[in-house]
């Protein structure tokens, strides 16, 4: 982060804005709440369905997307004046693909079991609409520091929803959290299972991720009426 700050200070010579001005802070906080990429913009749904059956892969996915989107936004933003507009989508794809391959290789080298669990989904970060969306909508028109904040903010907003969904799906679907049997043992019939509780097997299937996301959207919109589109 220190590196990024230095670069910003060199570039922005005009009326200097504090690094964490109100506007800049909004770049991070907005996507976490009222402009969440998943629940408001409904982007990145595919991966939210695929990997949220358990908490651990969701958290790793969230961290990977924070890294890819944060760094990617800065790279695109630094190049925004020299990218030929005719091939800008290709350039964006190359940047995100290169970053994703690096994440994949690092995971394979240092967290092999996790990389096996995430398998194709790491590769699928490339197709995550949030990433291309932020490159195109934000990084191409803003400085690196702002783009960095925007990238982190949006990726975190995505990650928060991922983790919430995964929490409920793992808890209700398998009765575990991070693989620990928090509700007792379903086979030995201990804990909650002694009273006839059963895991809801449907929760581990993809459709329930959509329904969980739907419930989050519902709660969010019922608390903040401004988010409801009129039609």
């Amino acid at each position: 982060m220190a590196e990024v700050q230095e670069k910003v200070e060199e570039k922005v010579k005009e009326p200097r804005e504090p690094l964490f001005s109100k506007k800049n802070r909004k770049l991070i906080t907005d996507p976490l709440t009222d402009n969440n990429p998943i629940t408001i913009q409904v982007l990145g749904i595919c991966s939210a369905l695929a990997i949220t059956a358990q908490l651990k892969p969701s958290i790793v996915m969230a961290i990977s997307v924070v890294f890819v989107l944060g760094v990617g936004n800065v790279v695109i933003s630094l190049m925004r004046n020299i990218i030929p507009s005719k091939i800008r989508i290709i350039v964006q794809l190359v940047v995100v693909a290169a970053l994703v391959i690096i994440v994949d290789q690092v995971l394979k080298a240092f967290a092999y079991e996790l990389s096996k669990q995430l398998s194709v989904f790491i590769g699928l970060i490339i197709t995550n609409c949030i990433i291309m969306g932020r490159f195109e909508a934000f990084a191409l028109g803003n400085g690196p520091w702002k783009s960095f904040l925007d990238g982190i903010g949006n990726a975190a907003g995505y990650g928060v929803i991922l983790i919430i969904v995964a929490f409920f799906r793992e808890l209700l679907g398998s009765g575990t959290l991070f693989g620990a049997k928090v509700l007792g043992d379903p086979i030995e019939k201990t804990g909650l299972y002694a009273y006839g509780y059963e895991n809801n097997g449907f929760m581990v299937l993809a459709p329930m991720a959509l329904i969980t996301v739907g419930i989050i959207i519902w709660i969010q919109r019922s608390r903040n009426k401004e988010l409801i589109e009129d039609n």
């Binding site: 020299i82 990218i83 030929p84 507009s85 005719k86 091939i87 190359v94 290169a98 690096i102 690092v106």
Partner: peptide, 25 residues
């Protein structure tokens, strides 16, 4: 940045840089 020659040079350089970075990793 709209010139064709610029676009071609840019893409060639980009491929070289990204390629060597990935090979190194």
């Amino acid at each position: 940045t709209d010139k064709n020659s610029y676009t071609i040079i840019f893409s060639v350089l980009m491929v070289a840089v990204v390629g060597s970075l990935l090979a190194f990793t």
